[in-house]
Design a protein around this nucleic acid. Structure first.
Lengths: 234, 234
DNA sequence: CGCCGGATTGATCAGTTTCAAGGCATGTGG
DNA sequence: CCACATGCCTTGAAACTGATCAATCCGGCG
């Protein structure tokens, strides 16, 4: 299971520091706000590609923020069918469960570094600091909003609409210099969109054929016509 | 739009009272807890079948609890395809959005009575009362948990697995004396499960044929074998 | 009694999955 | 430096699940 880069089993601690306060966008950095509160210690840790961060049902001891890399969170059916609920990219917080156990499994998609804080210390801070309590709520509410949008996609959109939505989401979240470098494979995309990897591949080829996007490589994509994608998105 | 039973447009007020504290199950009645806090006034109001409670995008002025009846919350695509995110039954809280606007539309499925409180007063209470702040968080977290389970259903379950899951959920939530009286039509069920109404009907007929359930009428169902349903549920 | 919305059932259709083969890039060992 | 193994992606053909179109059926109500 946990073949960590650093062999610290229970409390994985590398560099310990108090909230380095990333200079990122203000709306995004709720984690910075809460991490900078009294007594909350943030730790950095790394996972290798495909390594599990935590499993569904495990006690939720930590809350995480992606520093570098990417994480998928998913649920499984007993025969192995998988539904990825979200991809977590640099800056994103994940693993914040109000209950005592994690509801999904989290795995590194690529080599990944995270910042983490103890959930207990967050809850303690929330008990005395209204700002922190409010942040916990709005962060969970953001996840809920994403889930609500995603239910619409999974239940009612066609394959091409799903892929168009996915591309626009990734473009918004990780495009640099007009290009996006997808960290995940076709199977991950399929399991996120409720499709097979073959359907994802075919649909991307189709969009490429229509000149809506261009591949530098299979995972390096340039969008050529966001408007037509947005139109397909329904 | 709002053809209310009582003609109070902006602030629909009937009987005004301070938190009657329902004697329901403790875990369920978060609303009772928050409504009983200083300054939070609860109001009762009724909606007729198919009447809109609030629309997607509208400012979220109130938070609601179903007293009697049932409510569906949903999102639409521009061509009318609909995804129902949840059914809200007596005791359930809905309309609690952390942002300033509602993310889904809410409509009464049948004639429905709700209790409501001003969102502003809740937020105010949360600012001074840690218990209330915590309740807001856990209520949103409960919605998120449901959404995560439902994404798995929408993205990865087959028609029969979806219907089985639905029946078990409704059995758990509204079965009285071993029978459940569904408040919603086949189309609502389909739009909740990401299926057509015909597929829902066929699947229910199939389960009936297998003796797993019995119809008193189209919406009055008795489960005869929960175990076999749970097995199908995947 | 006859109307009407909701539900059922049948026949056909289409989109997506499944099964299968092959390509391309990367990395490793001879 | 090349040969080969491996993982990921693409593409094709066939099969299947659920959707669509259409025709009753049923129950409640004016």
């Amino acid at each position: 299971m946990l073949t960590q880069t650093i062999t610290t089993p229970a409390v994985p601690a590398t560099k310990v520091f108090t909230a380095p306060r990333t200079p990122a966008a203000p709306a995004i950095d709720q984690f910075g706000v809460i991490a900078s509160c009294a007594g909350v210690i943030a730790t950095e840790f790394s996972y290798r590609k495909d390594e599990e961060v935590y499993g569904e049902g495990e006690p939720s001891e930590y809350v995480y923020q992606v520093i570098r890399g990417a994480v998928r969170t998913y649920k499984l059916l007993n025969d192995g069918r998988r539904q990825i609920g979200a991809f977590h990219l640099p800056g994103d917080v994940f693993g914040l469960d109000a209950g005592s156990t994690h509801r999904l499994t989290a795995e590194a998609i690529a080599d990944t570094t995270v910042r983490l804080v103890k959930r207990r210390s967050l809850e303690a801070a929330a008990g005395s600091n209204v700002q922190v309590a409010h942040s916990l709520w709005t962060m969970t509410a953001r996840d809920l909003r994403h889930a609500e949008d995603h239910m619409l996609l999974l239940g009612r959109k066609t394959a091409i609409e799903k892929v168009a939505t996915f591309l626009l989401e990734m473009d918004r979240r990780l495009a640099k210099a007009g290009m996006m470098a997808l960290p995940m494979c076709r199977r991950d995309i399929g399991d996120y969109l409720g499709l097979t990897l073959e359907t994802v591949s075919r649909t991307l080829s189709q969009l490429s054929g229509q000149g809506i996007l261009v591949f530098s490589s299979a995972r390096q994509i340039v969008l050529r016509n966001r408007q037509r994608l947005a139109d397909m998105d329904a």
